[in-house]
Amino acid sequence: MSPVLPRERLIVAIANLLDGVRHVAVGASSPIPAAGAMLRRALAEAADAPRVRISILGSVAHNFFTNGSAELFDCAGQGRIDAFFLGGGQIDGEANINLVGIGDYPQTKVRWPGSFGSAYLYFVVPRVILFREEHSPRVFVEKVDFVSAPGTSPEGVHRTGGPHALLTGMGQFSFDRERRRFRLTSVHPGHTLESIKAATGFAFDHDPVAAMTADPDARVLALLRGRVLDELAETYPEFARGLSAELAA
């Protein structure tokens, strides 16, 4: 079997973070989270575990909503969605995310699309996975320029959801909501604690010697390269083709 690709590692990491969910939703233009959710569903089926439902926005085959684009939010508000993914042009050390822009609002010098549903979903989805492949000081900043959605909320504010983990191209972090700090939990092969520190604009907790991200076993990899890539091709044909080509090379 060909060696594990970096993107496959991210897909497997997401599937692991989704262990135990009943319903996971995936936003538009998110092939890696979508693949991770599909892998979790396949793993649950193989283990005879409770069924995992997936709602992939932008997909026809993997989306059962019939009440327009409001249904995702209604569903989340009732606690019917266990996990969701958010990214950010900027993410800071307290897990605040910025999807709006850099500089003084509203005439920001860089303008990104906007906050989408983040200002709501971050509050009401229990397991929000922050996912950003690019791991650099311009993304992981000390303090975001604009808070699209805050990592934590003061006592008394309705908050049933929030950040569960941060996954990047270099490593994986957990988030402590009490202390409002990330903790590095594993380093992907090819990177080190030192290189991650250099690429991160905020301070984070870590063990003296950081653990390496484990390789997926052959069974998981076979599911990913078979069934999951087939399912993914419906929504993300380009991505699925690219990954297949990389595996064949």
Partner: peptide
């Protein structure tokens, strides 16, 4: 990618942006 005329109008300050969130 991004919406080009929107980005240009924001940079020029020639449009009023009222940012929201989908469920709002």
């Amino acid at each position: 990618g991004g919406a080009p005329c929107f980005a240009r109008a924001i940079a020029a300050g020639s449009i009023r942006i009222v940012d929201s969130t989908c469920p709002a």
